[in-house]
Write a protein that binds this DNA or RNA. Structure first.
Lengths: 212, 212, 212, 212
DNA sequence: TAGTAATCGAGACGGTACGTCGGGTCTTTGT
DNA sequence: ACAAAGACCCGACGTACCGTCTCGATTACTA
């Protein structure tokens, strides 16, 4: 009934003198997994507001206490649950700024339009807007900081002499994320590849020229 | 909210046939006002999630049923409460696309950064994202449709031959609203006049040139 | 159309001038009737607790005010509604005390077991038990005071020398009403003619003999 | 019912082999007691209709949910609250049917006239009359079934040859309870010892003779 | 081998708010 | 004067979750 150390995800032998080992009963990985799965299922079914700790506990067959022991509220729980859905892999650079921008837009769209993000993002942002600590905690959770990508993209463009030295990385990031978010979650618009090309074109041309 | 000459309260000498007069006890305008004031105060104090119907009733010294009689939930109540804060007056056109874009951005910032909108917008959007009917009801509430402004702006620019014939009004609207929203409510960034100028420049240049 | 002083239950008002003429809009007898009908229907459908002023108003298509103008609460309304169901005609005397007692019991059963009384009596009594004024008002509403019947019955029996001079009229009335009520509303028992005969026999024999 | 005094808030003694011990946080006996006390106080002050769950919760300093966890409505709560007041101990037999009947009547009067019963009985009966399940649940709650008493009483009288073999136990029970109830709750009459003697006499004599 | 310490299940607890129902009152127009 | 309509305040309903809090039972590491 209990997961042994040798089964499931743990393929390594347990080190007898592991400093991270604590006294007391170890955390039940199975319960942990069930909770995350229940959270995923519930939020996809009923949305951000329909997700409740009680519902997760019921669904996972777990005591509420066990949830509260590891996550302090439902947003904290969601953060871990959808971390993967909101993470982004580094992009392969293309030969042109246009190509890189389309790549960034495409990834942003893929992330924000994922089933999980679609259900969760607006609610999550609302909470983050009211809770500054939460916002910071959330930002620091994603492996690939989105700001870094735009920075590298512009760096490469600068090498190719496509743009000048102005550092628009942050602004570019905000415009990409902003337009995708607005279309997706405010206007509920489909966004085609052609749309992405057009947006990338506007951004690229806008960044290219420094002339007044 | 145009006041036609024939509209408003006419001092005619025909009180018995007043079309606005209904049978039954008339609505208590004072209670109505108290409720809206309490809503405003509460949402500014405690934010979107801290706003409850019970709290409003308590604060306004009004029965809960009186609130439910006129508004079906707290979003509906908020919609009326912050309608003014979220409305926008038509903008005076300037001589250049750059000037018009800065004007649009400035207005968007002013609206989204107003104390009320700042507290309310993210939460409101989260609800709208989950409830399609609500979204439509909310959109139709504001007198000046934001999409119309960008359309006119681009129309004027086209007359001046600053842009070609592509209809980017909707996209422009989304980019303006998106970047302002993202900076304001996701990144919690201040946005200076210089920032607005830079954003407008990027957008203008991006829209100007149609060459690939 | 107008109710004159000798009509129905409301006979206490005496207009100083013309008894049949009042100033202002006359009472709408149709509404009055609709209210009573709606009351009857509702109480039979949903029982005493299921009967509400709001429900009556809804069903009768009448304003609540109109009900409250004429009846001060639902018990008062019920009193008028079921007055007929709870009233009893004078009984024809028989040749024996036994026969008279069976008659009294039979009538009591008929009254308390009527569809209306069956729904209403327990609830009504509960209210009367808590509200003394109500109890008196209710008692005075029925044309044939039940106590009088038992009195006459015993009087006749005394003439026939079946009982002695002790005045047991009130007690007899209470025993008859009590046993019928208890069987009907507490035990939910059917009561056959044989049962009535047996009860009458016990009562008669009990009253007949004065021996120690 | 624990026999040991649980006067303090939490008994520190731990029974090692208590079969009634369940998993989860144990029921707070103090809250339980406070609720019953508040119920008693409220119903005596304000009567059956004045008793509300909210009122009990307020008075007991307890959450409403705690009440609803254990009792499904106010009648269920009352049932436990006044179980003691409505229970009756077995009666000591006397030497005569007359004496036994007076004893039964006296007990019936004592029970129905107790402060609690006086406030509660009519309302309770009204509810029972409308809800059959409730009636049965309520009947099964009292330790000494009243019907059994009358049965034994008549049995003893039969042995003494005071009555014949007809089984009038149920009828006797109904007549006793009925007349006491009617006098007490419908007529609001005081009932003296002499009254009881007279009623007992009527009943005894009525039951004694089987000849018409 | 016992002790210590953290975990998990179960579930009771005080709370807050929900949205609804009905009570009784009041205010207006219309008859 | 009465009727109809309906707005108003009020109190209570029963429910859903919240986050906290005992409990008894497990399940490691440690002394």
């Amino acid at each position: 009934m209990q997961s042994h150390p040798t089964d499931s995800t743990r393929s390594t032998e347990k080190p007898p003198t592991d400093p991270t080992r604590h006294v007391g009963r170890p955390r039940d990985e199975r319960a942990h997994r069930l909770i995350l799965e229940a959270t995923t299922a519930l939020v996809l079914e009923r949305g951000f507001d329909g997700l409740t700790i009680e519902g997760v506990a019921r669904r996972a067959g777990v005591a509420k206490t066990t949830i509260y022991r590891w996550w302090k509220n439902k947003v904290d729980l969601l953060a871990e649950t959808c971390a993967q859905d909101l993470s982004r892999a580094p992009l392969d650079p293309t030969e042109s700024l246009q190509g890189d921008l389309v790549g960034l837009l495409r990834q942003e769209l893929a992330v924000q339009a994922s089933p999980m993000a679609h259900k969760v993002l607006p609610g999550l942002m609302a909470r983050m807007a009211e809770d500054d600590a939460l916002r910071k905690a959330f930002e620091s959770r994603f492996p690939i900081a989105p700001g870094a990508c735009t920075h590298k993209t512009l760096e490469r463009a600068r090498v190719r002499d496509e743009v000048d030295g102005t550092d628009d990385a942050a602004l570019l990031r905000e415009m990409i994320a902003g337009v995708v978010f607005w279309r997706l979650h405010v206007c509920h618009l489909e966004t085609s590849e052609t749309d992405l090309q057009r947006i990338a074109q506007v951004l690229r041309t806008g960044l290219e020229r420094e002339s007044s």
